[in-house]
Amino acid sequence: MIEIRDLTKRYGRATVVDSFSLSVAAGESVALWGPNGAGKTTVVRCLLGLVGYEGSISVGGLDARRHPKGTRQMIGYVAQELAFYDDLTVLELLDFSAGLRRLDADRVDAVIDTLGLEDHVEKKVTELSGGLKQRLGLATALLPDPPVLLLDEPTSNLDAASRESAIHLLDRLRREGHTLVVTSHHMEEVGMLVDRVIGMEDGRLTIECDPTDLAERLGIRAWLQLVLTNGSTEAAVQALQEAGYDARRNRRGVLVEVPAQGKGKAVAAVQQAGIDIEDLEVWR
């Protein structure tokens, strides 16, 4: 469905994407993973023809450079920095977007319903919270029911409940056969949504792996904050250190460094020492 060959993008002397190649099959779900400035958003903008580039991109068999409108017709896009026309209401914006895509009012009603925007349709875009804007972004992307969805940090502004709801929706779209390209910093999101992770750094592809291997391949670590019953802190630190963990006391209990996808073993080490854990938090 998507073929990127030797994509290179330069801004002045800076090369932000460097000979990047990627194939995404129809119905496949891929995450572009990497730190800020890795080039993920630039790849997405190249796919949409928003910036010039060297190399070649095709979507659905169409050369994106020769058929920019045809390419965009197949793509629903959620930007990282959400920007719409602030003076339009939610309904007017969706109607405008639907008009540009030759869609009828039924589709507008459908996405309003899907994204739970019924109570906000008369609000101006400028009056929306970050979370509602993100839902509006998803609504405009889903409006044409496109075969390809480009989602640039699609849940970055959502609270926990809205994020779970959005991930559930995107997972449903993936299972229905949409092709998804997602940029994300969230491990859980990547784990739930994608079939393959493409790691990027300094504009280059650095790693390609299954999402379950990502944390291990990248050596991603997390911190567990354990809240314990009174008087058991020292014993917990000792048990964790004996199990090979970097653990230390802090004001709330014990802080222990763990592999991002191996938290359970640290918890088990504490429990096997006969210590009750009252609560725990995960920090990254």
Binding site: A26, R66, H67, G70, Q73, M74, L100, D145, P147
Partner: peptide, 22 residues
């Protein structure tokens, strides 16, 4: 869900007065 094959013929790359009007 739409497929790429269904959508490809629907768009003209030439300027469309309808879009300019919208």
């Amino acid at each position: 869900m739409s497929t790429a094959d269904q959508l490809v013929p629907a768009v003209s790359e030439r300027p469309e007065p309808r879009l300019i009007s919208i």
